[in-house]
C-alpha cells in the first residue's frame, strides 16, 4: 500500500481535520521525493496516532524516529507550506513493517509553552526521543512517565538546539566551578 493510499484513509476517517498529502521535498525539476507528511493539531494527536497504529490498512507498528524542528528563521514557500506563524514542529516518523511504508506526521506548537501529548502509551520507543526533544528544544510531552533531561546536565537552563541559541553557547563553559586540589 502506497503512502498516498494511507493519506486517503486518513482523509476518510478524519474529514474535519482537512488532511492533505504534502511532499517533504519537491526537487527543482518538479518531481517530489516520494516522502509525505501530514499536519495534525496537537489535541487530536493521540486519537490519530492510535488509529494509524491499529487500523489494518495503515498498521504503523513502529515509531522510527521522533524529532523536533525549530522554524524560527525559516524562509517559507508555498511548496513546503510551513505556516509562518508556527515555530516548532514535532516530527514523527512512522514505519509500517506489515505494509512497508512510511509517513511523517508533524504537530506544530508555539511559544511560550510548547507542549504536545506524549505518544509513549502508543509506542514505547518514544521514551528517549521525547526526552531528547524536551532536553534540546524544551518541548513538553504531557503524560510522559519520566520527562527529564537526558543528554545535558540537570542544572542546564537553556535549550541549545533552538535557533536563538548561539553555536558557541552562552558562557556555560566558563560557569563551571573550578575544582582545586585543596577544595576537592
Amino acid at each position: 500500500m502506497a503512502t498516498a493510499a494511507v493519506i486517503e484513509v486518513l482523509q476518510e476517517r478524519f474529514p474535519e481535520l482537512g488532511i492533505e498529502a504534502r511532499p517533504l521535498c519537491r526537487y527543482l525539476d518538479g518531481r517530489d521525493s516520494g516522502q509525505f507528511w501530514v499536519r495534525v493539531p496537537p489535541e487530536r494527536l493521540i486519537e490519530l496516532m492510535t488509529f494509524l497504529r491499529d487500523d489494518p490498512r495503515t498498521r504503523f507498528e513502529q515509531l522510527c524516529d521522533l524529532t523536533c524542528v525549530d522554524y524560527l528563521n525559516y524562509s517559507t514557500t508555498p511548496d513546503t507550506a510551513v505556516p509562518p506563524e508556527d515555530r516548532f514542529a514535532v516530527t514523527y516518523s512512522l514505519l509500517s513493517l506489515t505494509h512497508n511504508h512510511r509517513l511523517w506526521v508533524k504537530v506544530f506548537v508555539n511559544d511560550p509553552e510548547p507542549e504536545v501529548p506524549s505518544v509513549y502509551s502508543i509506542w514505547n520507543g518514544a521514551d528517549w526521543p521525547e526526552r531528547e526533544a524536551f532536553d534540546l528544544f524544551g518541548i513538553g510531552f504531557a503524560g510522559h512517565p519520566d520527562l527529564r533531561r537526558i543528554l545535558l546536565p540537570e542544572d542546564f537552563i537553556d535549550y541549545p538546539l533552538r535557533k536563538d541559541y548561539p553555536l558557541r553557547g552562552k558562557g556555560e563553559r566558563e560557569a563551571f566551578d573550578v575544582v582545586r586540589r585543596d577544595s576537592a
Binding site: 517533504l24 521535498c25 524529532t67 513546503t80 516518523s93
Partner: peptide, 19 residues
C-alpha cells in the same frame, strides 16, 4: 531545494538515518 528529506541505510547496528 527548499524542503526536507530522510535518508537511511542499514548499518551494523540497525537503521542509521538522517533527517
Amino acid at each position: 531545494p527548499i524542503g526536507e528529506a530522510y535518508g537511511a541505510n542499514e548499518t551494523a547496528n540497525g537503521e542509521l538515518g538522517f533527517y
